[in-house]
Design a protein around this nucleic acid. Structure first.
Lengths: 195, 195
DNA sequence: GGACTTATCTACTGAACGGTAGAAAACTTT
DNA sequence: AAAGTTTTCTACCGTTCAGTAGATAAGTCC
């Protein structure tokens, strides 16, 4: 066992609780008081375990990507581009319409912000770009493998799917019901691949 | 002329300056210090002229809708649904990629927030819903007039266009270049109306 | 000119912000 | 049991937040 007084809370569950606060309120909107209250720990414990607010957010974001946002990576592994897009779109609908925390952390965490949160905004921007790039690479492979038209533009398709996902995230943040977003995904799929 | 000491600044230009601060930083991210500095007035002058921060934001939002966001209303007046969507999409691309303040105020003003800004978030959500409803009504008319298929679902189409617009806003907030968003609009138009 | 009205300024309020000092408590090691 | 290590707690730090009091200045009205 580790030296010293043992920690009285589980860091993973505490991080999950912090994640949900950030998810609902955004980086700037979530105060340290909000976070400690939700996590059930005091501020010094939080700082000792996770660093500062920015560190905590980054750790929560990692957890988000591996947990509630894991459908993205899973989808990329599907055998065809169509199946990948289908999986990502419909799983995204379920994720962003979770009534406990509607929307997408990568979109609403810090879409724009005051000066203090600028680096967090950049981090989220970079993550969204990375996701779009992952889609692009997947579509490039699909073109090579013949399950997308040879004259398709992988970059355009990736941007299109990203925009749909982000649009759904905005609508979900506004309380759009699951049903409606499913119909949105239906529409996107009916015209896939877009010409 | 009005009674009392005359105001030394123009309220409309001051409101424009405030609008651009809110646009770049969001409601929570824009501090009163940011605002007064940009507007070139002191805090008491601001409060006397515009009320409190929330009032100021609402007035800036009205100005946004009538100014930089005016393309939406203009587009709805186009003779056909296709022309309306085309106008709104391409004008939106220009608006959200304005390098001075990328993105859309109605999306990034308060997509999610702390408790204090909750009413602002609701106001923005309501405005986005209103826009979607305006699109739906326009498409309903278009179906009646025969410039959309009789079996089209006006609500679905409105949601789809809204999602594209909001997705573009998110991408623009992340610095997506105008060229790329134009190609996104191209794709949306090529498959219009979506089946 | 004097009364009245409104805008402007400096200086300030209380509350909330992120973050920390320092002492006490709980464990392992020897 | 004593030493060493780490967590926990209360209480606090300085800063920034939105918002305001009160005095002064600049006009109009009579």
């Amino acid at each position: 066992m580790a030296l010293g007084r043992p920690r009285e809370f589980d860091t993973d569950t505490a991080l999950d609780l912090a994640l949900h606060v950030f998810w609902r309120k955004g980086y700037e909107g979530a105060s340290m008081a909000d976070l400690t209250e939700a996590m059930g720990i005091t501020k010094p414990s939080l700082y000792a375990a996770f660093g500062n607010k920015e560190d905590l957010f980054r750790k929560a974001l990692d957890r988000y990507v591996d947990g509630p946002g894991g459908y993205f990576r899973t989808g990329l592994k599907k055998p065809t581009a169509r199946e990948a897009v289908e999986h990502i779109l419909y799983e995204s609908v379920e994720a962003v319409t979770d009534p406990k925390n509607p929307g997408c952390l990568a979109v609403q965490g810090a879409l724009c912000c005051g000066d203090a949160a600028e680096t967090i905004k950049q981090e989220l921007t970079a993550r969204r770009s990375k996701s779009e790039e992952d889609l692009r690479l997947r579509f490039t492979r699909a073109i090579a493998e013949g399950d997308l038209p040879a004259d398709a533009d992988a970059g355009d398709l990736a941007r299109y799917v990203s925009a749909i996902l982000q649009g759904m995230a905005v609508q979900a943040a506004g309380g759009a019901p699951r049903e409606q977003l499913r119909k949105l995904a239906d529409m996107a799929m009916r015209s896939w691949p877009p010409v």
